[in-house]
Design a protein around this nucleic acid. Structure first.
Lengths: 186, 186
DNA sequence: AAATAACTCGAGGGCACCCTCGACTTGGTT
DNA sequence: AACCAAGTCGAGGGTGCCCTCGAGTTATTT
């Protein structure tokens, strides 16, 4: 219904955009717990204005994360279009972590490093459900070990999130992932 | 040399022990960044007294971690005593993570989640050097894939540290590790 | 151009943690 | 028992972050 509250005043709309931009950059670079005061400063706006637009940190999440989570659906779709089921599976996983590698905030969200709102959680789960189809296909093709369950993606996600975050290990994440994926072959 | 500074006064020695006990518990339960003020409170001692005994957080680390890191050497020794090289390898890895699972602080130290002093870092590396011998044995026995290097343990450690920490995944850490180890077979 | 609803600002109060320092207490010594 | 070095205490100052609110500014409407 209601396409959404009233229209913003011109200056307010501008400030909102600047805040979203700053928050998007801050979350990507520093993670979902980036200081809000820093975001306000980067946006060239006072902390009071920030709170006028986004009453809570979660309000930022709701404005920013869905689009980023939607990228996962694209990934899943591409994977399902790929003819080779194993290729589809590894490609999906690889693409997923590539996204997380360049977006610290998305990484936090998927690894549930912060408590997320039910809505955000649900969006993450939706991504997982897509993945299930990819797993199933690789399993019935006899390429993925049959005892690997969708839920087993969670520890993988959680573990890799840390590998991607640590200076010491992030350059080698693909190598590390490779060892793991070799363990998943049928 | 010098067996170590002057002898402490009786009450001071008592307080030092209480502090070490509280810190050990706090680090194990909450990680190496547990609040010092909480540690003082748990020890039944003022924050001033805490700082009188341990001028920095690192002073606590130096008093507490070496003994815990030494447990890794024991593990390595046991592994080298084990006749089957693959069994030795997986047993070592499993034991390592079992220790980390029950000690949040050790987990932090090994994954280098906090900046550690050079001395502590070195102690961690020493553990890795032990591991090298175990890897080599499993490799020459043709059980461990030859391209798995000692340095590849680092991402494993870092990733698992997060898996062990997250409520959602820690109960299943052995299952997750199992997939990974399957990828390491020759 | 006057009126006003919408918006912006930033000082300031809260909290959690860090760490210091001068006043007090106490164990050990003579 | 008198002394004092050793030890203890905790108020308080510093930092970084959170969030609020009343006073001031500005876009928009008439």
């Amino acid at each position: 219904m209601a396409a959404g509250s009233k229209p913003l005043r011109a200056d307010a709309a501008r400030n909102r955009d600047k805040l979203l931009g700053a928050a998007t950059r801050a979350f990507a670079a520093r993670g979902l717990d980036a200081p809000l005061e820093q975001i306000a400063r980067d946006a060239g706006v006072s902390i009071g204005t920030l709170y006028a637009h986004f009453a809570t940190r979660e309000a930022f999440f709701e404005a920013i994360l869905p689009a980023q989570l939607a990228a996962l659906d694209d990934l899943a779709e591409k994977a399902l279009a790929e003819p080779d089921p194993w290729q589809a599976f590894t490609g999906f996983i690889d693409g997923l972590f590539a996204l997380q590698a360049e977006n610290h905030g998305l990484n936090d969200a998927l690894a549930q490093r912060l408590p997320l709102s039910p809505a955000m959680l649900e969006a993450c789960h939706a991504g997982l459900r897509q993945a299930t189809r990819i797993l199933d296909r690789a399993k019935t093709a006899g390429r993925l070990r049959p005892d690997f369950e969708p839920a087993d993606l969670v520890p993988l996600l959680v573990g890799m999130s840390q590998v991607l975050q640590s200076e010491a290990t992030s350059p080698d994440w693909r190598r590390h992932l490779g060892f793991f994926l070799d363990g998943l072959r049928a």
